[in-house]
């Protein structure tokens, strides 16, 4: 499973738990429009750290938090292995 599909699958799981209806997941979807609040993103980042072994937003101290879903996914894809 690609990083992108792992992220989407984790998001769907959290959406189900938090009773959030996700819009179709596309690269240019603004994170604000996902329906996720900061807690949901905090949970997502923690679970992805366990699954992928990395938290790109803590690794780079000055990293700006992404604004679209595509940027969010790339933050994980672009972490040096």
């Amino acid at each position: 499973m690609s990083i992108k599909s792992k992220i989407f699958s984790a998001m769907k799981q959290i959406a189900e738990e938090q009773k959030v209806t996700l819009p179709p997941l596309e690269d240019d979807l603004s994170l604000n429009e996902t329906g996720f609040d900061s807690l949901a993103f905090a949970i997502l980042v923690a679970r992805l750290e366990d699954e992928l072994g990395v938290d790109p937003f803590t690794v780079a101290e000055d990293a700006a938090f992404p604004s679209t879903l595509g940027e969010f996914v790339r933050a994980y894809e672009n972490v040096p292995a």
Binding site: S38, L39, F41, T58
Partner: peptide, 12 residues
Amino acid sequence: SRRSPITGAIVV
């Protein structure tokens, strides 16, 4: 507590 870059901490 586990640190979180988004909320400072989360519960695990």
